[in-house]
Design a protein around this nucleic acid. Structure first.
Lengths: 194, 194
DNA sequence: GTCTATAATTTGATAGAC
DNA sequence: GTCTATCAAATTATAGAC
């Protein structure tokens, strides 16, 4: 049978979504290009037509997810003026993200990006995590947050939330992560509130 | 020149320490048995004499580090009776561990063990992390800790500390991790104290 | 733009001498 | 217990027809 020519953009998307699924499930190194080919039901040639290498697929995924996470975090912070509300909003957005797109969040939180993208910064030095620290620093400046090392304050408040997301993605949370939202925000905030 | 026969235990240790170094540096999949051979300056045959497979090396490392972390955590908790002191003691021990043996801690915190040890539990379900939750649960029962979901309380207190260890291992902490000890314990405790 | 076929390497692992 | 030599399979990537 003749191969049905598909729209080019669709194939590219298919490769990316298939790769994300497999990378999240087994990790980058345990996923071969053959695995992607098989799962997506396309040919090796097609994959290499759209991407230079397996690494380029991971890079495209990484760039995309980082820009999406940055947008989500930035928008969440911009929705409010009070520091506590900014923090709640960010955590809400992250929890929502991790429920609506668990594969992407899994790839963000669990993948050792530097193992296959050597020039990638540690995830905690990327823009979304910087934004969280900036919110805390502004909160300290305005007197809403205690005089703490911003690194410590971030670690407790957002680190606690991130930890919950890890647990959720590992499948060891008894309830949906959204149900922990209020408690984690209130508990974390109590730690750092002025 | 004739190969100098070494004590068997020494070779085994050498293989393990070399593998730990490489696994921590590049990850399990990015490290080949050839890499281990080259780094340890021994032969392939010697490696396969001591271990059945590359996987068996990782398993041995994993079992060892888990039992050491369990001992450290258990001992730290047993040194005190008050919940806050137990928590401080555990975090102190973990920080010390991560400074005295950063490679092992890196392997614990960063490695995606389930990628290469399919039957391994998520790291947060292992004994050391269970112990931390048990301390919190006992603290709630005794009235030292507020009536919180123990998962949330653990995430904020110990998750904050674990987050700092991640930052330290990623090399983005400006000061030695030990200098953050007091602040992270006091801040985390404030979140969950009754 | 998609395909099949295959090249070039590298991988984990084994055999057998010493 | 350590070594060298080697295997079979899998890997990433390319070539070239359609």
């Amino acid at each position: 049978m003749t191969p049905a020519p598909k729209e080019p953009q669709k194939t590219r998307e298919l490769i990316l979504s298939t790769a994300l699924l497999l990378f999240a499930e087994r990790g980058y190194f345990a996923t071969s290009v053959q695995d992607i080919r098989r799962s997506a039901d396309i040919s090796i040639g097609s994959i290499y037509h759209h991407f230079d290498s397996k690494n380029a697929i991971a890079r495209a995924l990484y760039d995309d997810l980082l820009s999406r996470m940055t947008t989500v975090t930035q928008d969440a912070a911009d929705m409010h003026t009070a520091t506590k509300e900014k923090c709640r909003s960010i955590i809400t957005a992250l929890f929502a993200f991790s429920e609506s797109d668990p594969l992407t969040m899994h790839f963000v939180l669990h993948a050792r990006h530097r193992e296959f993208l050597p020039e990638a910064m540690p995830i905690c030095s990327t823009r979304p995590f910087e934004l969280m620290r900036e919110v805390i620093i502004a909160g300290i400046a305005s007197g809403e947050v205690r005089q703490l090392d911003p690194i410590v304050a971030s670690a407790v408040l957002f680190g606690g939330a991130v930890r919950l997301m890890h647990l959720a993605l590992d499948g060891v949370l008894p309830r949906p992560i959204a149900t922990y939202l209020e408690e984690i925000v209130e508990t974390g905030w109590r730690a750092i509130a002025a």
